[in-house]
């Protein structure tokens, strides 16, 4: 019994598929970070969207043994957080997107606390990417799916983001999927590495 319950913790994908993807079987333990790479159009973003249950898909996704379908969509997405490659904003003022105090997170990301008063349309791509990460983490997701979270960042910011994610992962025992084109970054942040090719997932060493 004990062995079984330990086995079921973390994120489990069984034959997850969409029109251009899969079937994908995948297991990511809690507290683990895995990297995912692959050519553009290979379905990386589609896979993340399917895990966050944003697109209709076949197969089953479970978190700690609980199937996605057993809870409302919005509750699932609070637990399984997705950071899209291009984040969008529903209000002009940055601060409107935050319901909790995120001063500490912003500081760790090298952002001025005054950023909350900024206008989302005037932020740089890099600022928006880091603000979106802070926005995502405020609801304390147990799984975080990062779609090229440092694509638009300079080296210093990249290091800050990596440190923040690692701290969050350890503190909250979160499972992390990190999509990156940078092989060096994959090695730095993740303990296991995967590639997606034509919608098929392959483990690599």
């Amino acid at each position: 019994m004990n062995g079984e319950s330990e086995d079921s913790t973390g994120l489990h994908l069984a034959a997850v598929s969409t029109l251009h993807l899969g079937p994908v079987d995948w297991q990511i333990k809690r507290g683990e970070c895995v990297s995912l790479s692959g050519p553009s159009g290979s379905g990386k973003s589609l896979l993340l969207r399917a895990i966050a249950d944003l697109d209709p898909h076949g197969g089953e996704v479970r978190l700690d043994g609980v199937a996605c379908e057993t809870m409302a969509g919005h509750l699932w997405r609070r637990r399984v957080g997705l950071l899209p490659a291009e984040p969008f904003w529903w209000s002009e003022r940055v601060g409107d997107h935050f319901i909790t105090d995120v001063a500490e997170t912003l500081d760790m990301l090298g952002l001025n606390p005054a950023a909350l008063e900024w206008n989302t349309t005037r932020c740089s791509t890099g600022e928006r990417q880091r603000l979106a990460l802070a926005r995502l983490l405020q609801s304390y997701p147990e799984v975080i799916l990062l779609d090229e979270p440092t694509a638009a960042l300079d080296q210093r910011s990249v290091a800050q983001v990596e440190a923040l994610i690692e701290g969050y992962r350890l503190r909250h025992n979160a499972a992390v999927v990190w999509v990156s084109h940078d092989a060096e970054q994959c090695k730095r942040v993740a303990s296991r590495h995967f590639t997606l090719c034509d919608g098929q997932l392959e483990a690599c060493c």
């Binding site: 944003l54 919005h74 997405r77 609070r78 997705l82 997107h97 995502l136």
Partner: peptide, 20 residues
């Protein structure tokens, strides 16, 4: 559509996402 999805991703209900 991208903004609505941003709200959904953030864990809002469909109602909150389309309310405005």
């Amino acid at each position: 559509r991208r903004i609505i999805e941003a709200r959904l991703i953030q864990g809002q209900t469909w109602c909150e996402a389309i309310e405005a």
